[in-house]
Nucleic acid binder design. Structure first.
Lengths: 152, 152
DNA sequence: TTCATAACCGAACATTTTTCTTTTTACTGA
DNA sequence: TCAGTAAAAAGAAAAATGTTCGGTTATGAA
C-alpha cells in the first residue's frame, strides 16, 4: 500500500492523539469528515494501523523499574531458538524481546516494580527457562525519552 | 492515587484496545456506562493514563530497522549531561533514550528505514552532537516481542 | 478523449459520549 | 449501633460523534 502526504499527516496526528474526533482531524487535514473516516478505515484494514492503546504512566502504576537484559543461549539450533522465543513471549514482565547481533543473542526489555521484583523475575522465571546460557543486566537510571510516535 | 481491582482491569482493557466503547467496557466490568466513564476520566485527570495512541506496523511504514545504540560521554559534568539529553530528545529517529548503569552512559533505541539510513543518522546527526565519546551499536535481527501493555 | 476507478462531499441516520439528577453504597465518629 | 457524610453508581436526556448513503468530482490508463 502506498501512503500519500495526507495519510502520513493523518498517521502522525493519530499517533499523537488517537482520541481526536474525525471533525478535528478533518479541519487539520482540509478534508471532509467522511474522507478522513474512510482513510482511517483503510489504514486499519491494510494493517498500517495495528490498533489503539492507552499509554500509562509507569511511575503511577508502580512499574518504574526498567532493565535491559542481554541473553546468550547455550546452543543455537532451531529447536533451542524456537523454544526460548515461545517461552519468553509468555513472560509478562518482558515488554520487548529482540534477536540481535553481537556478543549476546537477545535483548529483553524487562519492566517490573523494583530491584526486588527484578531479582525475583530473574531467579524464578528467566534463568529457569531451558537453553539459557549467560545473562547481563543493564539497569535504567533515568528515562530521558520514551515515545511510540514514529515520524513519517 | 490508589487503584482498585476494577481500575486495574479497566486499564488492562484500555491498553489492549483503547477504542472500545464504554458500553462494551461496562459489560466486561459489570458496571454502568456512567461509572466506567467517570473512572476513565479520573484516571486521565490523575495522569495514570497519559494519552491514547495509534500503533503502526513498522514494516508497512518503512521503518523496520531497529538499533540499540550505546553511548558514552566524554565527561559527566551536569552541563555535559543536560546538553546531551536535550539534544538527543530532539532526534526523531531516537524513540527511546535511557540513562543506564554499566560501561556506557546511555542506551538509545533508534528506528530508521535501513542500514543506509542508520549510517546517515550516525554520521550526520548522533556523532555530531557535543560531548559524545564512543558508541556501540547492536542491530536487531528480528523482533520477537514488542508490546506496550503492562500487566497490573 | 473516454472509460473505469478511486477519492471526496454533504446530508441523514445510528451510536456514543457527556451531563444531570437520583439512588445506593461505604465510611466515620459519637 | 446508628445517624451523618461523602464517594461511587445508576438511569435518562442531551449533545456530540461515528457511520452510511447517494451523488459528484478528480485521477489514471487505454
Amino acid at each position: 500500500m502506498k501512503l500519500d502526504t495526507i495519510d502520513k499527516k493523518l498517521l502522525e496526528l493519530l499517533q499523537n492523539d488517537a482520541k481526536q474526533t474525525t471533525k478535528v482531524l478533518s479541519l487539520q487535514l482540509n478534508l471532509s469528515k467522511t474522507a478522513v473516516y474512510e482513510r482511517i478505515r483503510k489504514l486499519e484494514k491494510e494493517g498500517v494501523i495495528k490498533g489503539y492503546t492507552a499509554l500509562l504512566d509507569k511511575k503511577k502504576i508502580d512499574k518504574a523499574f526498567v532493565v535491559f537484559c542481554h541473553v546468550r543461549l547455550t546452543q543455537h539450533t532451531k529447536e533451542h531458538v524456537v523454544g526460548f522465543e515461545s517461552d519468553v513471549i509468555r513472560l509478562e514482565e518482558v515488554l520487548e524481546c529482540y534477536h540481535v547481533s553481537g556478543d549476546y543473542d537477545y535483548i529483553l526489555k524487562v519492566n517490573v516494580a523494583d530491584m526486588q521484583a527484578y531479582r525475583n523475575f530473574m531467579t524464578s522465571k528467566l534463568t529457569s527457562l531451558k537453553h539459557i546460557g549467560s545473562t547481563h543486566s543493564i539497569f535504567m537510571i533515568e528515562e530521558v525519552k520514551n515515545t511510540t510516535v514514529v515520524e513519517l
